[in-house]
Simulated scan of single mutants.
Amino acid sequence: MGNDQADKLRERLNAFHTKSKSIAVMSGKGGVGKSNFSLNFSLALQNVHKKVLLCDLDIGMGNIEILMGESSTFTIVDFFEKNLSLKETISTSVIGLDYLSGGTGLGTIFRMNDRKFQRFLRELEQIMKEYDFIIFDMGAGISEDSLLFLLSVDEIIVITTPEPTALTDAYAAIKHVCINHDSTAFSIVVNRALNYSTGAAAFSRLQQTMSQFLKREASLLGIIPDDSAILKAVIAQKPFIVYQPSSQASKVISKMSKEYLKNQTFIFTEAEQAPFISKLKSFFVRGR
């Protein structure tokens, strides 16, 4: 290959960059296994050599730490109140997962003053370069502040169960996002399904309702069985994918992560970089 050709090829390759994916995991109501999914899905992605940062934005609940049986030294609250760097507030669990604890005493980061919030965005933008995925475990339901994150991420994963109330609440949460943003990508996980057909029927009902009333489609990310191993792992304060890796639920979420990665693109042009941070900035300015 001549020098001119090699230079041109180098220029074309340098015009593209890897970018982390920002994912929000939400549910319409509490108690459907949202945080448990966030934790185990993060570990499943890590098991196939993806670098993941799990952020607990269910401020005050600390579910991620409880599910792992661990306690972080610092939380996101310390970033704002003790002037620590965002990197200092990130903990690494004994199983090797990087996570940011939500902590308590922080009502919302969006009501911070401009200087603090801009510092948060700058440091988050730098940290995102170190990970393939940033997964935000949101609080149940949608608040005015969590909506800003939901409208900014690349993708939203909605956790529900086959119960009619859970499906109704999931639809209400999806509708709330769609009213404010008509192009958000949704993936659905049906948790605690008695069998695959039960889970598939639940997804079908939710999908039909979305199509009829919102004119929107969602993809089925997976159906997690109502596996006793999950409850045993919660009691033991261990992720079920670690506690019983051969359980049906563990096999399903491992397969789910691999199928999910098949449809992911990690190479983007310069113009497509960091839309998550850009959106957060614009929402913050708009809300001032």
Score class of each variant (00 low, 15 high):
225 P>C: 12
66 I>Q: 07
50 K>V: 00
283 F>W: 13
141 G>T: 08
30 G>K: 09
174 I>L: 11
224 I>R: 05
63 N>W: 02
100 L>K: 04
145 D>Q: 15
178 C>S: 11
140 A>I: 10
264 Q>N: 04
26 M>E: 01
211 S>Y: 09
140 A>W: 09
149 F>S: 07
60 G>T: 10
149 F>D: 12
5 Q>W: 01
59 I>N: 02
194 L>Y: 09
69 G>I: 08
145 D>F: 15
206 L>H: 06
286 R>A: 14
225 P>W: 11
29 K>P: 03
225 P>H: 12
126 Q>T: 07
197 S>I: 12
269 T>V: 00
246 S>I: 04
157 I>H: 01
53 L>H: 00
171 Y>M: 14
16 F>H: 11
64 I>W: 02
250 S>K: 12
242 V>K: 04
45 L>W: 01
6 A>L: 12
64 I>S: 04
93 S>L: 01
84 L>A: 07
193 A>N: 10
248 Q>T: 13
73 T>V: 07
266 F>G: 02
26 M>D: 01
66 I>M: 15
195 N>Q: 11
256 M>T: 04
118 Q>H: 13
130 E>T: 06
287 G>W: 06
67 L>R: 03
171 Y>V: 13
115 R>I: 12
187 S>L: 15
23 I>F: 02
12 R>V: 05
105 G>K: 12
258 K>H: 00
79 F>Y: 08
16 F>Q: 12
23 I>Q: 06
93 S>W: 01
188 I>Q: 03
47 N>K: 13
216 R>C: 02
132 D>K: 07
233 A>K: 09
95 I>T: 02
178 C>E: 08
48 V>S: 00
75 T>M: 09
